[in-house]
Amino acid sequence: MSEKKKKAVIILSGGLDSTTCMGMALELGYELYPLTFDYGQRHHIEIENARSVAEYYGVAKQHKVIKLGFLRDFGGSALTDQSIDVPVGEEEASEIPVTYVPGRNLLFLSIATSFAEASGADAIYIGVNALDYSGYPDCRPAFIHKFEEVIALATKVGVESDGLQIATPLIELSKAEIIREGVRLKVPYHLTTSCYNGRAEACGECDSCRLRLKGFADAGLKDPIAYEQQSL
């Protein structure tokens, strides 16, 4: 009798980090179940990128796109509120940036937990990072650990079994280390974008573009996507 294949839900934005998580989970033998959120973000192009990434890995049928339009209705973030400009250049590291979306990863992980339970998954992969995390409070290890405690208390899989792992393989890696690992795994970075503005060509000026460009430069590699301009 063959051993049951492990399953992993991948929170897939269509950006560099989440796509790297796809490659890492695949290498570990997981069957991939990508989960993408349409929450009214400016960088809506990422959703199409996520679909392309799912097709690249042959898991388009398992890929789910969940609409969370109320986050756009709530506003409060430069990524969902057109009245707030996406900042150009680096922001003050001591402040939570205006690109923080209130409660985003809390919602994403809650929905991913439901999807994982329903599909019999063993793990949820999320591309949070404690080094290049841009000051977002919901990308820190402390948040992930507390959410795992919630899963253990509030879900059937948590009460009746060993629970559900939240895998954060990028959490202690620099952007350059993430990119080198992704290149080793042949991750399709040409299908991704990281730009907060969500135009056909990445702006090259927002915080996310700058982090990505610096990562490729530090890794000694060329970013395969097109930019309107490159500030580095």
Rank of each mutant, 00 (worst) to 15 (best):
A219F: 01
Q82H: 15
R42E: 12
C203K: 04
N105T: 02
C206A: 02
L12D: 11
Q229W: 12
D223A: 05
Q41K: 07
I84Q: 09
E172K: 15
S83L: 05
Y196H: 08
Y39R: 03
Q229H: 12
L28K: 11
G75N: 14
G120K: 07
D38E: 08
T80N: 04
S231Q: 06
L221I: 01
S94Q: 12
P169N: 15
Y227I: 07
V159P: 01
E95G: 03
L213S: 00
V187P: 04
A217Q: 07
L213Y: 00
A130M: 01
P141F: 14
D138V: 08
V86D: 10
R184V: 00
A116I: 02
S161H: 14
S110F: 09
I96N: 00
D73V: 08
L170H: 07
S18L: 15
P102S: 04
Y136G: 07
S18K: 10
H190L: 07
L32H: 06
A217L: 08
S13Q: 11
L109F: 11
R180V: 03
K156G: 04
I124A: 03
K186Q: 09
E160F: 15
I66S: 01
L107D: 05
T113C: 08
Y56L: 02
G163D: 12
S194D: 06
V9F: 04
I11R: 00
G40M: 07
P169V: 14
H44D: 06
S13G: 09
I84W: 06
P169K: 11
E148R: 14
Q82L: 14
K214T: 02
E3M: 14
L32F: 11
Q41L: 09
V59G: 12
A200V: 14
G135T: 10
L185N: 06
K64A: 06
Y57R: 01
L79W: 03
V59T: 12
T36Q: 04
E117Q: 15
H44Y: 13
G15L: 09
A176S: 15
E228N: 13
S161Y: 14
T155V: 05
V65H: 07
C21W: 00
E48A: 15
K222H: 07
S18A: 15
D223G: 03
A118D: 08
P137F: 12
G220E: 01
E46C: 04
V98D: 09
R51I: 10
I10Y: 09
D73P: 01
V187D: 09
V187A: 08
P102Q: 01
V86F: 13
T80R: 01
D17K: 05
P97C: 02
E228C: 09
D223R: 00
V65P: 12
I151P: 09
N197P: 03
E91H: 13
A8S: 06
A116H: 03
Q230I: 11
N105G: 12
A226R: 13
I111N: 08
K186R: 02
L71Q: 00
A8Q: 02
A142P: 11
V9T: 00
S119Y: 14
T36D: 03
K6W: 11
L221T: 01
